[in-house]
């Protein structure tokens, strides 16, 4: 043994004195030396040890490259969001003013506004939420509290899982055939609301069921022990306890319905409406439909109007989410077990 290979004496870095036993993991001879000292005797073992260390350097580089690559990929997703926000902000903000919000759409870009679209969206969302919440929460309660184990419930569960994967456009076709024609609502606010309600129903049902499931069984048992009927138990105890989760589902449903345009176009959303709706059977337009119309035009001014309308739309979604998150935190603090 000429030299201890683990000796990292910093003074011994003279290149002339760089003997083959220095602590370089890529140097097979040196590694062989290290291996011999650890008790490996056969040359095959020495070779294996050497090639392991040899590979190790390469594998460590691979690991570093991999870590870098996945960080880069994550950054790509964030970057896309960043560019999107910047693009919309820079193009839309100059066009966003009070006139834009209080004017009707117009053929002239400088006079066009989103008043009818805004009112249309608000009306439709309001009614959609009422329909969808009543139907969705009731279904969830029925599935989770009343008939949790029978065959009908199992079938229903499968059915809801499949409904949640149906493209929004297909709901539009359903609305067109059922609400517009068979129920004869016409191409109206009412038909649009019913269509959207059916579309967001699975979201509310799934979220509400999850929420009801997190309520501890002891709550129900205690109520039952005091003689409460299933519905009394649900209405006074289980449902209020599950409210934060139910609300989360409702928010998700509202933001989905706010941004959805495809089913409404099929049900018959019009892009040019210069009056405010007074009855539920009036024709309608919504913000996403208006954006679709403007963004599809070749003129730059209309695309800027689309960007401005997008800011309003995304703002509305964020405000809705904000209100609901506020209510949820309040409720969460109120009931704890």
């Amino acid at each position: 043994m000429t030299k201890d290979p683990t000796n990292n004496d910093p003074t011994n870095n003279d290149p002339a004195n760089n003997d083959p036993t220095s602590n370089d993991p890529t140097n097979i001879y040196a590694n062989g030396q290290a291996a011999r000292e650890e008790g490996f005797t056969s040359s095959r073992e020495i070779h294996l040890e050497a090639s392991f260390l040899d590979n190790l350097a390469r594998r460590r580089v691979q690991a570093k490259v991999f870590a870098l690559a996945i960080q880069l990929a994550t950054c790509m997703a964030l970057l896309a969001l960043g560019i999107l926000v910047w693009r919309i902000g820079s193009q839309g903000l100059p066009y966003l003013n009070w006139n834009f919000i209080t004017s009707f759409p117009s053929r002239k870009a400088e006079r066009a506004g989103i008043l009818s679209a805004l009112v249309g969206s608000a009306t439709i969302i309001f009614m959609t939420t009422i329909f969808a919440v009543i139907l969705g929460v009731s279904t969830a309660v029925y599935l989770e509290e009343i008939a949790s184990k029978n065959k009908f419930a199992k079938f229903l569960e499968l059915n809801i899982a499949n409904l949640s994967g149906v493209p929004s456009l297909v709901y539009g076709m359903l609305g067109l055939a059922v609400f517009v024609r068979i129920f004869d609502f016409g191409r109206s606010l009412l038909a649009a609301s019913c269509t959207l309600a059916l579309m967001v129903l699975p979201i509310i049902i799934i979220a509400s069921r999850e929420a009801l499931r997190t309520v501890p069984p002891s709550t129900r048992l205690a109520a039952a022990a005091l003689g409460a009927t299933p519905w009394q138990t649900t209405y006074h105890h289980t449902l209020p306890a599950a409210m934060p989760g139910v609300l989360t589902g409702i928010i998700l449903a509202i933001s989905r319905a706010l941004g959805e345009a495809a089913p409404l176009i099929i049900v018959g959303g019009v892009t040019y409406i210069a009056f405010l709706p007074t009855r539920l059977t009036d024709s309608f337009t919504t913000l996403p439909i208006q954006i679709f119309n403007w963004a599809g035009r070749p003129q730059e001014e209309f695309q800027s109007l689309a960007a401005a309308a997008i800011i309003v739309l995304v703002g509305l979604v964020l405000v809705t989410n904000g209100i609901a998150i506020f209510i949820r935190t309040k409720l969460e603090n109120k009931n704890r077990w």
Partner: peptide
């Protein structure tokens, strides 16, 4: 957040950017 952005907004982004 990307998932919450309406589809039509992505359409606008595709055309303009």
């Amino acid at each position: 957040l990307l998932a919450g952005i309406p589809s039509v907004v992505f359409g606008y982004f595709a055309i303009t950017t």
